[in-house]
């Protein structure tokens, strides 16, 4: 791990930073976010492999680090899947609208929560 490798890694990171800022101004639809995150992953990998010495370190350290990232990814995937699949509202609309519908259906029912803001 000569200083040359470290400085090279640093330069690569700076170039990638400029690249990711440049890509922001090009419209490729929804791919913008994937490109941005992809470049970030490459940069993070460079930092982990060379600055953090994982390239030369014991494999278990990398394994555990990757496991922790996998746990985060798992949580993101499951919660996003859940959010995407929320059952269609029993009473259509967001919370204030639901309250309005409830008010119409059962005007005398006690109101649990008053929503201060309309939408």
């Amino acid at each position: 791990m000569s200083p040359g490798i470290l400085i090279g890694t640093g330069l690569a990171l700076l170039v990638l930073t400029v690249l990711t800022v440049a890509v922001r101004y090009i419209d490729v639809g929804e791919f913008n976010i994937y490109i941005a995150i992809g470049i970030a992953v490459v940069k993070a990998t460079l930092v982990a492999l060379f600055f953090m010495h994982l390239r030369w370190d014991r494999p278990f350290n990398s394994l555990f680090f990757v496991a922790s990232i996998a746990a985060v990814v798992l949580m993101i995937v499951f919660t996003t899947m859940d959010t995407a699949q929320y059952a269609p509202d029993v009473i259509k609309g967001n919370a204030p609208e639901a309250q309005k519908t409830l008010d119409e259906l059962a005007p005398d029912a006690p109101v649990a929560v008053k929503y201060p803001y309309g939408m």
Binding site: R24, I33, A36, A44, V47, F51
Partner: peptide, 23 residues
């Protein structure tokens, strides 16, 4: 200490595009 400092850097590498670079 270096490892700790790199993880701080590593997290910022993700925060930057997540907040500043939304098209």
């Amino acid at each position: 200490g270096g490892l700790y400092w790199h993880i701080v850097d590593l997290i910022w590498i993700f925060l930057f595009p997540m907040f500043y670079l939304i098209h």
